[in-house]
Design a protein around this nucleic acid. Sequence first.
DNA 1: ATTCGCAAAGTTTTT
DNA 2: CTTTGCGAAT
Length: 767
Amino acid sequence: MDDLLKSLTQPQREAVLHVDGPMLMLAGPGSGKTRVVTSRIVNLLHQGISAHQILALTFTNKAADEMKLRLARDVPDTNVWVGTFHRFAARLLRQHAVLVGLSENYTIYDTRDSRQALLQAIETLDFPITHATPEAIQHAISWAKNNLVTAEQYSATRGHELGSIVERVYPAYQKRLLECNAVDFDDLLLHTAMLLRENPELRSSLDQRYQYILVDEYQDTNLAQYAIVRALSIDYPNLSVTGDPDQSIYGWRGANLGNILEFEKDFANVKVVRLEENWRSTKSILVVADQLISNNTRRKHKELFTDNPQGSPVRLTCYTTQKTEAEGIAGQIAGAIHSGRRRPRDFAIFYRINALSRSLEFALRDLGVPYQMIHGLEFFQRKEIKDVLGYLQVVNNPRDDVALMRIINTPARAIGKKTVERLRAHAIRYGLSMLNAARESGLIESLNKRAAVAVAKFVAIIDFLGAVGPVDVEEILGHVLSQTAYRELFTESDDPQDQERLANIEELLTAARQFDEQNPGGGHFEEFLEQASLVNDTDDWETETDKVTLMTMHAAKGLEFPAVFVIAVEEGLLPHERSRHDPSQLEEERRLLFVAITRAEEELQLSLVKKREFRGQTKYVVPSSFLMELPREEMELIGAPLGGDELAEESWGDDADWNEAGDDGEVTFNVEEFAETPPPASSSTSSDLAATLTTAAEMVSEQAAELPQVSPDEFHQGMVVRHPEYGLGKIVALGGGSARRVATVDFASGARGKKFILNASALRPAT
DNA sequence: ATTCGCAAAGTTTTT
DNA sequence: CTTTGCGAAT
């Protein structure tokens, strides 16, 4: 502990040593915030505070994992609860589900599932919605929930058209969710906040349980999150929040900047600590960031400074077109890599909208620079994954109609739209869940025999899965795959997309296996599903690989890179067109650029172009108004017209000036020079990856056939195997930990569901 | 039940 | 210009 303190600055030390009472830590970018927070937890434990009285809340899994990792380094085996708001709420809600009308096996719907539930609710209302899209309604409901407005409380402002629709739809939607025993993301917070508000004994016992609460990125909390944290800090107001108002970039999602700006009014005797010293960036970079952000009014004044060297000046480069911009940047990167000065992973390129990544991808690929792009949601949103998990959802929560309707005819089993409609009508009429309605398919008059039989077969599958019992997740998923023959949909196809789907299913099984290892005992279906819906795969962005990173400025928060490029610093893109006219939204756009700039450690280039192709047509670009707020005399300006005085106010927005500059605007780097660069290992696409994986798997099974002893890990679900007694068969499910891995096998000879302990059996892969 | 074609929209994104 | 989703046709 003493060693720890020695390496800290005075303000950092103050924050670390703070024990009781509320604390507000205003931490600028690169100020060592995470380190301070984890050190403070270490100190709390040191003071004799029990680990289970400490609660650390973050926004993203990435941040939570980072904190866990650092904490584990200092205090191995601690059981301080570190996690996201949503996960904490989900856990609390499991224990007290009944109080809000749910049962503990409730399902968490993602945005798409919620939309389906919403559409179903609108159907039951049967009044036509003409002037609002479902997305708009969904958004309005989400906004209400984030602001703690319940369905009963919601009332439209007079004359507000969308509002009056929402007023009717919101309660119906909420009813539908309860019928399905499901919640949406916002409900996790709303229900929990209401739970605490309406059950004073529960609130005070939890307040006592969680005496020390730490919240990260407090500037991004919404009202619901605020209410939860506030309710847990009344008797024991040892709440410490960390954040930076200048890095609040999620206002459009309901984040309430007021939460952090007014923290000091909210609690008595708040200790305020300012971490202003920056350890990340050069002076050149920091001064640009500082000047820019000082144009905002809604902030807490902060003086950023650093002991780091001056560094090279920040570049502001103007290219002719997005093509030359991309090539120029790719050329600089290739050059630096080629000369051995930098590695690919040192670089990041940020842009305001995903659509801008295209030209960069081409340019990087042309020069053979490996890169990775961070897109938001992926894995758990894929159709094949959602389909397979849909079965598990229904098994876990038989009232989950949304999941049921997703899978009832997937893979196709002759249950058409009409049949589903009739089932649904029956369900509504008798107040049944879809599954129970399906059970009665034989009694529904509108259904013909063929349809009724098809439905009965589906019910049989669900019942079979339900009867499997509390086994490992990997095993139940294996049963899902073999019962539905889902895998067979893809195995015969040579469409590369299908191969990718197959690989994704394997990945799901691997994820299930890892989960099983961490949660032994079997039957943890709902925890697995919860993890699947609350996780997103930007979280496991590969930090280890040596590639240039391309991402939106939003995704960049919390990261740092030696060299950063920010492209398209242009009016209409940054600030974005839709934010340009509202002063508070404009400030958020400025914060976004501030976040992007402060990711850079040593080198930074901002760039724009003269004309940009957008949605098919080329338009002359107006430089971002933010550029005028930067200390241009301290920056290196490259490329006409930014080199001269043309960046003066009078030429702003005047397209003519841009035309005159000519078409071969200066490019900072000669691309041709690097065209001959021997291409480094190119960025591997997922299909490449799938191909390698298949080959590897083949090699493994070839080897296995020759070797007398086979490792249990070499068996996988769906594999064809041979047994000396039963002959050829197929693995329909796998379960158990690595030492006691059990395979369930159906044999061609007719023997079904035979179980073998892989370590001990004579079962071998067939080749 | 699947496939094809057309229309419409096209910030940012967590959970 | 692209992508994506829904609806109509086979």
